[in-house]
Each structure stands twice: as structure tokens, then as C-alpha cells.
Design a protein around this nucleic acid. Sequence first.
DNA 1: TTGAAACATGAACCAACATTCAACTTAGAA
DNA 2: TTCTAAGTTGAATGTTGGTTCATGTTTCAA
Lengths: 210, 210
Amino acid sequence: MATEYRDPIESKDKQPRTARGLKTKRKLLDAAALEFGEKGFHEASITGITQRAGTALGSFYTYFDSKDELFSALVKDMSMRVKSHAAGAMTEWQDAFQREKQALEAFMNFAREHKEIYRIIDESEFVDPQSYRLHYEETAKRIFERLQEGSAAGDFRDGLEEAHAWAIMGMNVFLGMRYGIWSEEKSAVDIADLANGILADGIAAKKGQG
Amino acid sequence: MATEYRDPIESKDKQPRTARGLKTKRKLLDAAALEFGEKGFHEASITGITQRAGTALGSFYTYFDSKDELFSALVKDMSMRVKSHAAGAMTEWQDAFQREKQALEAFMNFAREHKEIYRIIDESEFVDPQSYRLHYEETAKRIFERLQEGSAAGDFRDGLEEAHAWAIMGMNVFLGMRYGIWSEEKSAVDIADLANGILADGIAAKKGQG
DNA sequence: TTGAAACATGAACCAACATTCAACTTAGAA
DNA sequence: TTCTAAGTTGAATGTTGGTTCATGTTTCAA
């Protein structure tokens, strides 16, 4: 038989059509987040995921095409969760500096409570580079918008570029890794204050010091 | 037969003993850096490495115990190379700010010329977490020492902590990734200037602006 | 009630390497 | 020149784990 016709929509369509299916898919997704978070992509196994989820091995392929596809879906989901958590923490703000401080503090607390999310996003650099780039590009864009608003409000100086957003993001990510994931020896507030100090004044000696 | 005695030194010893052996090991190391850099740890194969090196598959195990062991050795080697490259770029300096600028500029240029090194170090977070932590902890320590020297010289303010070093390192790493590896739309000097601007003055509006 | 679509199950399949090994070649000290 | 340790070779082995599939069960609209 020649190559048979496949509806591109149908072929992608592994969405559950009943309440039962939805529940199973949810269980698999949650289990996968744990498994990937604990073991990393390559050490994680489909068997491990279905065991955690309490389903049969084969059920996995009812909802996902492959291990990679699942991981990719997960990265997008986590990316969104980080984003909305941060957004939720910055609803009200007086000045732009305080808003950045809140953003970092929220990020650090989120990282602590969801270490597996941090790991999945980070590992996507190698498993699903596209999603990785997208995640950070969008995050940088969001920071950049805040920078522009801050400039307009007179809190930040003029002429800030997207690269400034990348610098701030890098600061936040590394502080989150070191003081959020690796150890909790310092409080999120203290770290956020410290980072804010850099943004506010830099690290130069004050006039008359030294 | 019971477990036989193995001299711990001998068992580790896969060092070449002739010029020929040394040359082969060198070829394997270089080939491995390329293979891991291009494909990542899991996609890379021993076969691919030995093919690049132009040796037989079995020769690999004359010099390395396993794929993991080789990767680990490579990470340590790369880490050292980054370190010494940066050190070489900071020999002479007037003020501490300029030194930091040179460090970032050197790092960015190095990343551009050796994208595979960047990738290998980054992937070690998942393949050899120990080496990954060690790399960044030592880098942070070195930055922190520079901060202290800068304070003593009257360029930087007092009271800088190790966390400041982590913040600066995060900035540098992300700027290196975005403007060194992903695209070269901006020159290393421009990015280094921009980062230095943050360290010097922060991003607050100047008095009388806005 | 009923029948077809959706869903669940887990044994079996299979390809992809990492690793081993026994036979062979080369180097270089004596 | 000779002999042994060092180095080379690549076919064979073994294991792991993603994916498939035939069979059985549940759901729910008509």
C-alpha cells in the first residue's frame, strides 16, 4: 500500500475526549514533572512516569507521541507557570525598583518550592533548545518592558536596552540557583535587596569613601 | 574466585607511556570536545569520537574508563581553560572597574571562539553536577576576590558579599550566551561597557532627569 | 439497552550504543 | 637484533528502555 493520507490535525490529536481521559493525562503530566525533575531527562524513564502515575505503560502513548514531545509540552507549561507566578507577585507597586525587587523575590521563592521546574527548564537547553530560547527571550522581553515603564516613570534612567534586561535576568537566574536551589542560607528578601542595591547604585565607592 | 585485589593507583592508571600513546589520547580528547560540543552528551557516541579521532573504537578504552569519565575530565579541562584565558586578559589594570570590563570582554570572546566549551560546561549541570558546581563556585570565588581588592583600592564600595559575585557572574554568563553564542549582533566591547555601566552607576535615573 | 469510540493494559519487539576481549602490531630498551 | 610492554583493532556481547500492538474494559450518546 502506498503512503496513506493522514489528516495533520487528527494525527496530532491526542487530546482526551472524556473526563476519564483528562484525569489520566493530568496524572501523567504531574508524574512526569516529578520524574524529570528528580532524575533529569535521560535518567527518567517512561516506565518510571507511568508507575508514579499509577497507569499502565501503554497508556502513556494514548496521550503523548514520544518522550521528547512530553518533555517539550512540560517545558512550555512550566515556563508559563513561572511567568504567571511572577506576574501575580507584582500587581501593585509604587516605584520600578520595588517592582524588580518583588519580581526577584517571587522568582526565588518559586524556585525553592518547585525545584523540579527549575531543573526542567534548565535541561531544556539540551533536550528542546527551541523552548529554552523562547522561554528566556520572552522573559527578557518582559523585563525590558518593565525597564521602559520604569524609565517613563522617571525611576530608571533613559537609554536602557534589551541587553540590560538580559543582564538583570542573568543575575536573577544565578542568584536563584545559588541561594534558592542549592542552599537556603539566605532569605529571599535579603538576596532581592542585595540585587536591588546593584541596580539602584551599582557597586562603586561612594564619594568620600575609601 | 573471590573479589580480587586491585591496586587503586594502578586501576586508575590509564596514562599513556609512550609518545604514540600520548598522541592518540590527545586526538581522542580533541575529538571528544568536538563531538560533545556539537551533539551534546547523550547524542554523542564513542564511535563518533573515535571516528573523528581516526582511531579504532577499542582504543578509546585504552585511555578512558567510560564515557562519563571522559566527559568529567573534559569539563575540568574546559573549566581550567576558561579560567586561564580570563586571567591572561586581566594582567594589567588601573582600576577595578576596568578589570571587570576586561574580564567580561575576554569571556565573551572566548565563548565565541569556543562555543563547544560553553556547551560542555553547561551540560555538566546534568551529566556531572559536581564539576558544574565546582566550576561556578570557584569562578564566583575569584570574582569575589577581585571585588575585595577593588574595595581595598577604593574603587568599589565596602560590604560587598559573595552574593554580589554570583550576581555579576550571572550577568556575565547570560550576556555571554545571548550576545556571544546565540548571536554576534553586538560587539563584545559594547556589551562589556553596558554591563560595566550597571556596576558603576546602577540603572537609576540621574538627579534632575525624568 | 447497546454498540462504537475512547481508553487501559503490559508483554514483546527492536534498535542503539557502551563496553569487552582476544588477536595482532609497534616501540624502544637491553 | 630481540623480546616484552604498550598500543591498536573491530567484531561480538549485553543491556537498557522507547515504542508498538493485540486484547480487554469502560464510557456515553442514541
